[in-house]
């Protein structure tokens, strides 16, 4: 397990992380969501030892991360970082050596990863001569070249075209199949929903939701009911007990039911108004879950991951 346990960090009076806790099992992908400035990058930097936490620690296989363990982490920083004038192949080999491969193994690994990410014929070019998409691939290769046991990627998909996104996603899924826990942050929630086994939502430095996407849905499901009653007068559901009207437009009504709300009573009331063309629990998208989680500042109700 890769465990982030109670990470807390303040810059002066500004508390940027408050008891951030989650765990990523080997061979799973964890999507890290949150608004800008929520603290995702700080969390990852703490894992890499670039920022010191005020409290809490990150553990891999039960062992707190130290310099030696961190060498087995593949990292992709938010702000991309490569030597602009250094050749692709040499650069990859250099990072492989810094992670502990000997010179020969590093050279082989550099060739292999350049080839696998479609950079085979660009190995001799300086990084600055490559397109942004290709630079991104080199960046990923630099994270993978040392065959890391853990991958921590800060916004790996930003700035990629759809083809690049697919290529990167395939690459990450392959790592996951090989048993590597992958943590990545992203604003592309559809992508997170598609790829990740579990998701964490960070808001103002606190984890407001952690769990698998179905788990998060279940938590929200049972609350949102969509009823389409074309002939109903406006406000037809307003008087029902335990029911709040979220939106109502030409009979297309979104209702939030609390614990005392009875879905069957809603159905009965709907039938009384005339035709009912749609009646279903609404499955929220991750985007909606995210909006809701980030919007109200509740205490984290972590669902067991």
């Amino acid at each position: 397990m890769l465990e982030f346990d109670g990470l807390t960090k303040s810059y002066g009076a500004n508390r940027v992380l408050d008891d951030v806790t989650f765990a990523v099992a080997p061979g799973t992908m964890f999507g890290f969501c949150g608004s800008n400035g929520a603290g995702k990058t700080t969390t990852m930097r703490i894992a890499l030892g670039l920022v010191r936490a005020d409290a809490g620690e990150v553990r891999w296989r039960g062992r707190p991360l130290d310099h030696e363990v961190r060498r087995r982490i593949g990292y992709m920083p938010e702000e991309r970082g490569l030597y602009p004038k250094m050749r692709v192949g040499e650069q990859l080999a250099y990072f492989a050596r810094l992670h502990g491969l000997d010179a020969r193994a590093a050279g082989r690994a550099a060739d292999e990863w350049a080839g696998r990410l479609g950079l085979g014929d660009r190995r001799g070019d300086a990084v600055e001569k490559l397109s942004l998409g290709n630079q991104q691939r080199v960046q990923l290769a630099a994270a993978l070249v040392s065959r890391p046991e853990v991958l921590i990627l800060d916004e790996p998909f930003s700035g990629l075209d759809p083809v690049g996104v697919d290529a990167l996603a395939d690459g990450l899924l392959e790592q996951v199949r090989g048993g590597v826990p992958v943590v990545f942050s992203s604003h592309q929630l559809d992508l997170v929903e598609r790829l990740c086994d579990s998701v964490g939502i960070l808001a103002r430095g606190r984890m407001v939701a952690v769990g698998t996407v179905p788990e998060l849905r279940q938590r929200e499901a049972g609350r949102l009911l969509r009823v389409v009653v074309p002939d109903a007068p406006r406000g037809w559901a307003a008087a029902l007990p335990g029911v709040r009207v979220v939106s109502e437009q030409a009979g297309d009504t979104l209702l939030a039911l609390d614990a005392g709300g009875d879905d069957q009573a809603v159905l009965a009331a709907a039938v009384r108004t005339g035709r009912v063309t749609h009646f279903a629990w609404r499955e929220p998208t991750l985007v909606e879950l995210f909006r809701e989680a980030v919007a109200d500042d509740r205490t984290p109700e972590a669902v067991a991951a």
Binding site: R45, L48, G49, L50, R70, R71, I73, Y75, P77, E79, R80, G81, L82, Y83, P84, F95, L98, H99, A142
Partner: peptide, 14 residues
């Protein structure tokens, strides 16, 4: 150069 290209973040991780 290392700061401007942010490569320093990768270096300091190792």
């Amino acid at each position: 150069e290392e700061k401007a290209s942010r490569v320093v973040e990768l270096l300091l991780a190792t």
